[in-house]
Amino acid sequence: MSSTMILQVKHVFKNYQIGDNNIPVLNDINFEIEPGSTVSIVGPSGSGKTTLLGLCAGLDQSSEGDIILNGIKLSGLSEDKLAEVRNEHVGFVFQNFQLLPTLTAIENVLVPMELRGVKNGQKEAMDLLDRVGLAARADHYPSQLSGGEQQRVSLARAFANKPKILFADEPTGNLDAETSLIIEDMLFQLNKESGTTLVIVTHDLDLAAKTQKIIPIKGGKIQ
């Protein structure tokens, strides 16, 4: 496999120990993703796709196999080191937005910048909010924003870090059809402008069809 890949997944297994039972969730997963590409991981509920996303993003460790993210082998890294890798290389968009309720829109966008030690990120954060059409709502709290607006803030936050790779877990799962299309367009546009690699986990085949590559997963295996 070429080392120029942004993400390499090699013979990855994931099992969960529940009581005396060893529950297999992922079984010998192999794929690689080129920098700057758009990829979707599709499958029914319970297929293992969200577990796979968590492993690829360094949120969890595989039971066996290797995941290499931007040249960094994730297996065996400490929690602190994994957090460092995520801060440095990874952006996230979640189905349920995961904005901090006590912070305004612009403060939420500033969080990843502050974690990286970026000083005076105010202008950049405002620029990102402007790009998702929310500059006028910068001082609003999540509870004052609609679901679509909250997801737009989370898009701005995801790109605040200038991530090498962005993982989106069912990014339109909580939105109506019309709002979903707006969010999808923004996601792909921001991704293209930033030259980021985009990996979307979804059961929405129309959304998956917009990506350059589809990885279908079922019963913990790539089909």
Rank of each mutant, 00 (worst) to 15 (best):
T211C: 13
S47R: 02
I222C: 05
E178F: 11
K221V: 14
I72Q: 15
A138H: 08
K73G: 05
G117E: 01
E184P: 04
Y16A: 02
L59S: 03
I68K: 03
T172I: 12
K210Q: 13
I222P: 06
N174E: 07
S194P: 10
L166N: 10
G76E: 06
T196Y: 01
G46E: 00
E178N: 13
L53I: 07
F13L: 03
G65F: 07
Q122R: 15
N30E: 05
R137Y: 06
P24F: 00
I214S: 10
K49F: 03
R157L: 06
P216G: 03
P112C: 13
N22T: 02
D139L: 13
Q151E: 04
D20T: 14
I18N: 02
L129S: 00
N22R: 11
F13R: 06
K192I: 03
L55V: 00
F92L: 05
P171I: 11
R86N: 00
L205V: 12
E84A: 09
L53C: 06
L205Y: 12
I68N: 05
P142C: 09
D60Y: 00
F188V: 09
G220Y: 02
G65D: 07
D80H: 11
L128S: 11
N30Y: 04
H89N: 06
M5H: 11
V85P: 00
T104W: 00
G195T: 04
N70L: 03
A105R: 12
Y141I: 03
I222F: 04
A168I: 10
E84S: 12
T202S: 11
